[in-house]
Design a protein around this nucleic acid. Structure first.
Length: 154
DNA sequence: GCCAACGTTGGC
DNA sequence: GCCAACGTTGGC
């Protein structure tokens, strides 16, 4: 299994929104970046785990953990003309965009702010910190995963 | 295929 | 609201 970091703007979809969902599951939809699409379609598998990262908010940071429960399948919001993520070039025969389903594993007892991630020696190489990185999904190493998990329990 | 213009992301 | 660092678009 692999580890990931999924970004979401809490004003759009937060970890608390997920916790209120029936069965605490949701489709991770709306991704419209080809690099991230490829990860959703080809690399992210059921059983993989991901940090739920809150972006574009104060403060940004990691709020908890989700588990992938369904592998990549066509993102139906691309064919919904009323969706903000509608893409007329995506069709049933040729789906352009993909999504996975996630389930809330846990909300951290303590929010891990970006500021704290930046200061932690074991987290300096996290892709989220790399200059210019804007991908909404990045991979996380086992060492990084463990370090953040430890922080969350302090 | 090049590249300028434009749009988006996301921390600050 | 600013702006760096992208990604996308479209004329040529």
């Amino acid at each position: 299994m692999r580890y990931w970091l999924f970004k979401s703007e809490p004003s759009c979809f937060s970890i608390d929104d997920l916790s209120r969902r029936l069965k605490q599951t949701a489709a991770w939809d709306g991704v419209r970046n080809y690099q991230v699409r490829n990860m959703l379609r080809d690399e992210i598998k059921p059983g993989d785990q991901a940090f739920f990262y809150h972006s574009s908010c104060t403060p940004p940071g990691i709020a908890g953990i989700v588990t992938v429960v369904k592998a990549g399948y066509p993102d139906d919001t691309a064919r919904d003309i009323h969706s903000d993520h509608f893409d007329p070039k995506s069709t049933v025969e040729n789906p352009r965009w993909y999504m996975v389903d996630v389930k809330l594993e846990k909300k951290f007892p303590r929010f891990i702010a970006l500021d704290e991630i930046k200061r932690h020696p074991k987290l300096k190489k996290m892709l989220i910190l790399r200059k210019g990185n804007r991908l909404s999904i990045t991979s996380v190493t086992k060492e990084e995963w463990n370090a953040v998990s430890m922080l969350a329990q302090e």
